[in-house]
């Protein structure tokens, strides 16, 4: 089924500031396993781009590469105009990242968690840090009492909201959220999705990894289907549904992956 691969656009690497992320034939091997097998991706500034994929598709590895935590083996990559394998520190100034399996410092209160990251993002500028903390507290929608408690006493939803608030309180240009609502109840998940929508309206680019297709449908301006380390499709939700002659994104994803890998 080569036509699926044909949908992937060849992206010339340049410093075009219209794009937050430009990836071209990105390869990554971890141990003996080829995790990314030539990822091509173009994400515009200010869009909510959902990377939809099954478990083990390579989403987390891609995020870690985008955040400069892992190095890619070959291909080309620009994140906000910088190559993350060479300019991690430049990218991280403008980056907010919440890994899937992450936790706040549990012996610290919510405020103290915000303060640590505010001090790092503000380079120790206390008044700027105060501003970030205030904003973080607002974004988290946690009460003053809750923020004054140790996060070990938080529910999973509260922890996730704090982590997201901590990652975006400094107005990053790019936010990477890996499975942001995974394991949360319907109220917590709703609040987080609302938060992402609001932030996106102010020009922040969100890249969200999820295997929850209804969430992808609710959030995404653009969606990319990732399976077994390759991008099978990249475009709007509407065109994905049309393209795969489906009733919803979930069906479109299943068809895309099923036809390619004959599952």
């Amino acid at each position: 089924m080569n036509w699926i691969m044909d949908k992937t656009v060849e992206v010339p690497i340049d410093n075009n500031t219209q794009y937050s992320i430009i990836a071209e034939k990105l390869y990554k091997k971890i141990g003996k396993k080829e995790v990314l097998k030539g990822i091509d991706l173009k994400i515009k500034q200010g869009e909510i781009h959902v990377l939809a994929g099954h478990n083990g598709a390579g989403k987390t590895t891609l995020f870690r590469i985008l955040a400069g935590l892992l190095k890619y083996d070959s291909g080309k990559l620009l994140v906000m105009g910088f190559d993350p394998s060479k300019n991690q520190n430049e990218i991280r100034k403008y980056l907010g990242y919440v890994p899937e399996d992450s936790s706040p410092y549990e012996r610290l209160t919510g405020f103290e968690n915000l303060k640590l990251f505010a001090l790092i993002y503000s380079n120790g500028n206390e008044s700027l840090a105060e501003k970030y903390i205030k904003k973080g507290a607002e974004i988290s929608e946690l009460s003053y009492e809750d923020l004054s408690r140790k996060t070990s006493e938080y529910s999973n939803g509260m922890k996730k909201r704090l982590l997201i608030a901590r990652a975006i309180m400094h107005d990053p240009k790019l936010v990477l959220l890996d499975e942001p609502t995974n394991g949360l109840d319907v109220f917590s998940a709703y609040r987080i999705r609302k938060l992402i929508k609001t932030m996106s309206n102010s020009g922040t680019t969100f890249v969200i990894a999820t295997h929850n297709m209804s969430e992808a449908e609710m959030l995404a301006d653009k969606v990319s289907f990732i399976a077994y380390g390759t991008v099978l499709y990249s475009g709007s939700v509407k065109s994905a549904i049309e393209e795969f002659n489906s009733v919803n994104l979930e069906e479109a994803f299943i068809k895309a992956v099923g036809e390619k890998y004959e599952i």
Partner: peptide
């Protein structure tokens, strides 16, 4: 092990 490292090293802290 407490799942806080990845976020910390993704900050601008060198």
């Amino acid at each position: 092990e407490r799942k806080t490292l990845e976020t910390l090293i993704s900050t601008p802290s060198s």
